[in-house]
Simulated scan of single mutants.
Amino acid sequence: MEFHSDRQLLNEVMNHSNFVRHPNEWWYFSYGDQLWAWISHEKLAIYGGII
């Protein structure tokens, strides 16, 4: 039960900070990359890979 509440707190804090959680991983969060743009329904990522 404690683990669940810790995970829930992490999710709430990260979401409040505009991070998004990977759909298949409870510990993996993104901000500004392509995954973030896709989940957030943004047209473009803030940053991407180096060309």
Rank of each mutant, 00 (worst) to 15 (best):
P23L: 04
Y31M: 07
Y47I: 02
G32E: 00
E42G: 01
A37P: 01
I39G: 00
W38V: 12
E25Q: 12
R7L: 15
Y28C: 06
Q8Y: 08
S17F: 08
G48N: 02
L35T: 09
L44Y: 13
Q8T: 11
F29A: 03
A37R: 00
H4F: 14
I50R: 05
F29G: 03
I46R: 02
W38S: 10
A45D: 00
F19A: 05
S17G: 09
Y28E: 10
I51C: 06
L9E: 10
W26R: 12
I51T: 11
W26E: 03
M1N: 10
V20H: 09
H16G: 12
G49P: 05
P23W: 02
N18Q: 12
N18M: 12
M1H: 14
Q34M: 09
G48Y: 01
I46T: 04
W27F: 12
A37I: 02
N15K: 15
W36F: 00
F3H: 11
N24F: 09
Y31H: 10
E2G: 10
I50E: 01
I50N: 02
S5Q: 13
L35E: 04
E2A: 10
W27P: 04
W38I: 13
S5K: 15
Y47H: 05
S17Y: 09
H41K: 08
H22P: 04
S17A: 14
M14V: 05
K43L: 01
V13R: 10
W26C: 08
I50A: 07
W27G: 08
N24Y: 10
I50W: 02
K43R: 07
L10E: 04
P23F: 02
M14Q: 11
L44N: 06
R21C: 13
E25G: 07
W38D: 09
H16N: 12
H41P: 01
L44W: 14
G32M: 03
S17Q: 13
F29Q: 04
N15Y: 05
E12T: 12
S30N: 08
D6T: 09
S17T: 07
K43C: 00
R21V: 05
